[in-house]
């Protein structure tokens, strides 16, 4: 079993939204970034993986086991940060330690307290008196303290300042040092992923646009900047999307090397995940 997580042909319909044929896999020892605009289906996908949503078509396997049939066994080894749900905020970090000892078999109070110290989080202060960043750090400390093999994090860095985000990213990198562990990490702050992700899965409007290694994406995809007359010479099959600016055109291409051979356009910039997301969502075909 090389894949720690496998999502196969998952479909889920709501009145005004549907996840369509979602498939991707996350190998051991890797970090996958799940990107997409708000409402694209990232959280729904995560909820399906965690069995928070039970009625869907398709198959989800974690550690080679079916996620609904082996739910308890799987969840003992999964650490979770959800976007907007956590412990009631009248509790303290100390209370969470007491509670979690009775929930996870492998709960490690020492490790938990180490994270609290590392993040400068007070033990006896009610969560409602924490700043948003402190609360997020507490959620992350809680997700890590039972030695999980898989971390599933929905927007773990949202609301954090750049310093705190960098601290969290370092913690994730430490976590992944164990080659048996993986992280699935949804975010719209794509710059975080450019530092740490091995794989990128991009969801738009309920379906997967791409799921590839980050290096492949950054190597193959590129942003061409050109004048109108240059753009008009580009064959429609040679680009994915384009955006018309006041003075130039931004064109998203999926095969940088072939494009370079075929066209004499000077400005071919490296693509960022942000550019990729914006052009894929807002660009014209």
């Amino acid at each position: 079993m090389n894949n720690i997580l496998e999502v196969k042909n998952v479909n889920k319909s709501y009145d005004n939204f549907a996840l369509k044929d979602i498939s991707f896999s996350l190998p051991k020892g890797m970090i996958m970034g799940l990107i997409g605009e708000n409402g694209a289906g990232k959280t729904t996908t995560i909820k399906i993986i965690l069995n928070l949503i039970k009625k869907y078509q398709g198959n989800v396997q974690i550690f080679g086991l079916d996620n609904s049939q082996n739910e308890k066994e799987i969840k003992e080894d999964v650490g979770v940060v959800l976007d907007d749900s956590f412990f009631p905020d009248i509790l303290t970090a100390k209370d969470i330690n007491i509670i979690m000892k009775g929930i996870y078999q492998n709960w490690d109070s020492n490790l938990y307290n180490t994270y609290l110290t590392k993040f400068n989080l007070p033990n006896n202060k009610q969560i409602k008196n924490f700043s948003k960043g402190m609360r997020k750090k507490l959620e992350i400390a809680t997700s890590l303290a039972h030695h999980p093999k898989l971390l599933i994090l929905d927007e773990p860095t949202s609301g954090l300042d750049p310093v705190a985000r960098s601290e969290i990213i370092d913690i994730f990198q430490e976590f992944i040092q164990n080659s048996e562990c993986s992280i699935l990490f949804s975010t719209h702050i794509t710059s975080d992923l450019e530092h740490i992700a091995d794989y990128i899965t991009f969801i738009n409007n309920g379906h997967i646009v791409l799921s590839e290694t980050k290096d492949e994406i950054l190597e193959q995809y590129a942003l061409v900047k050109c004048r109108k007359d240059e753009f008009e010479k580009i064959n429609k099959n040679d680009y994915l999307k384009y955006k018309k600016n006041v003075y130039d055109y931004e064109v998203l291409i999926a095969n940088k090397n072939e494009f370079k051979k075929k066209y004499d356009i000077k400005v071919i910039d490296k693509i960022t995940l942000d550019d990729l997301m914006v052009l894929m969502i807002k660009g014209e075909e």
């Binding site: 969840k75 003992e76 009631p88």
Partner: peptide, 15 residues
Amino acid sequence: YDTLNKWDNYATALP
């Protein structure tokens, strides 16, 4: 308090 902090959501993700 559970509802206010969506605890049920989080609790469902625990073993």
